[in-house]
Write a protein that binds this DNA or RNA. Structure first.
Lengths: 213, 213
DNA sequence: CGTGATACCGTTCAAATGAACGGTATCACA
DNA sequence: TGTGATACCGTTCATTTGAACGGTATCACG
């Protein structure tokens, strides 16, 4: 939808805004592209605005315009992070959360308006074969799981991670770790959410001795 | 350290900047607080700047000043996401980025002011034993690696993930996958960054047949 | 061929805005 | 008592900057 030039201009605005903390003026854009006329920039801004790529505040001299340029900010989500969800679903339990994970889901390719979402810190190694490690922060959406989804389930009063699978038309939960051999009938327990994302903070990782080389 | 008034002004700048996408002008600040003189705002800005709470770009009419304001409290970072970093370091290559990953590093327990940071989409399975999967988005900081760190390294013109280890006082890079048996002397190549975080978007994961149960 | 979209240039103007000068008042502190 | 920091007011000025008018050139399309 955008022409090459328009994309270049838009990108410059985004990058420049991020770097400086404020958007560039038309003349700064002009200078960056080597235009001889500031009007050229005005033309591009008009085009970008009419195509919905940015909003402008007419007249205002400084951020005078490039509002939506930093769209990333708008789809930011602060997702409550729980240590544990004792029972039921996390609706309205934000007060009990340990903190919030702020991430722009859209920027990592997810719909930016998921259903009610929440986050859990992963404990244990039950999903290690799905490459989910202890300490990872798993982000969940509240919806019905589809086969293959990784879900947060309430088992024996504890929230644990499992993969939701269907065998012989019956839904089960399965741990992704050989040491957890059990298949758990899914009907018997509460599924609290479906994992949509995972965030890991790289700790000064162990010098990895045991791993093969 | 800040007086009440100064904190109020700073907060207004922060909130206003975030809401609009660009910082307020001195007169907008003046109006918000009901000052009769714009000079009063100038005084406060001077004070805030001398106390290190914000930076200003003298003369510039629009974002003319309130630079650091945003990052201080709102530690949101838009991290440029690259497909590939062909050579050298990513400094100044933001124009070439494919997009941005927006995340509040502080909210996941990382220092919110890392050195220059960037993100890469992981390709291949070379770090599978470190539980890093193809398609994951790895976030890097530009600094010298410590033993055990996972780094982005430039090997044969391609950026790849490796673990930085030290054996017999000599630094090597190692893949976390049995099929990659080689240790690569670290001096011979360019280390582009150290991984500080990992973000995964849960794709409708494969119905996991081969994994043990 | 005419029309509209795109991408430019050059010029001019007025509004938005930062900056500076000088002044008042309060308060803590030495 | 006086000095410095803080918090204001009023005024003026130069610069930054958005905005508008008019023009040229290319290209696709019907």
């Amino acid at each position: 939808m955008l022409t090459d030039r328009q994309q270049q201009v838009l990108k410059f605005i985004q990058v420049n805004t991020r770097e400086n903390g404020y958007p560039p003026s038309t003349r700064e854009i002009q200078q960056h592209f080597g235009f001889s006329s500031q009007t050229t920039v005005m033309d591009h801004l008009r085009a970008l605005e009419s195509k919905g790529e940015l909003k402008r505040a007419p007249g205002k001299a400084r951020g005078c315009r490039f509002v939506r340029a930093v769209e990333t900010v708008e789809s930011m989500l602060s997702i409550p992070l729980y240590g544990e969800i004792p029972a039921g679903n996390p609706q309205g339990r934000e007060q009990e959360s340990e903190g919030f994970v702020s991430i722009d889901l859209a920027s990592i390719g997810l719909p930016s308006n998921p259903h009610r979402s929440f986050a859990l810190k992963v404990k244990g190694e039950s999903m290690i074969n799905a490459h989910i490690m202890e300490g990872d922060i798993a982000i969940f959406e509240f919806r019905n799981p589809m086969p293959g989804d990784i879900v947060a389930a309430l088992i024996d009063g504890e929230t644990t991670l499992k993969r939701y699978i269907v065998e012989n038309k019956k839904p089960y939960l399965k741990a992704e770790n050989p040491r957890f051999k059990n298949l758990i009938p899914a009907q018997e327990l509460v599924i609290q959410g479906v994992m949509i994302s995972l965030v890991r903070t790289a700790r000064p990782s162990p010098p990895s001795a045991k791993n093969s080389a």
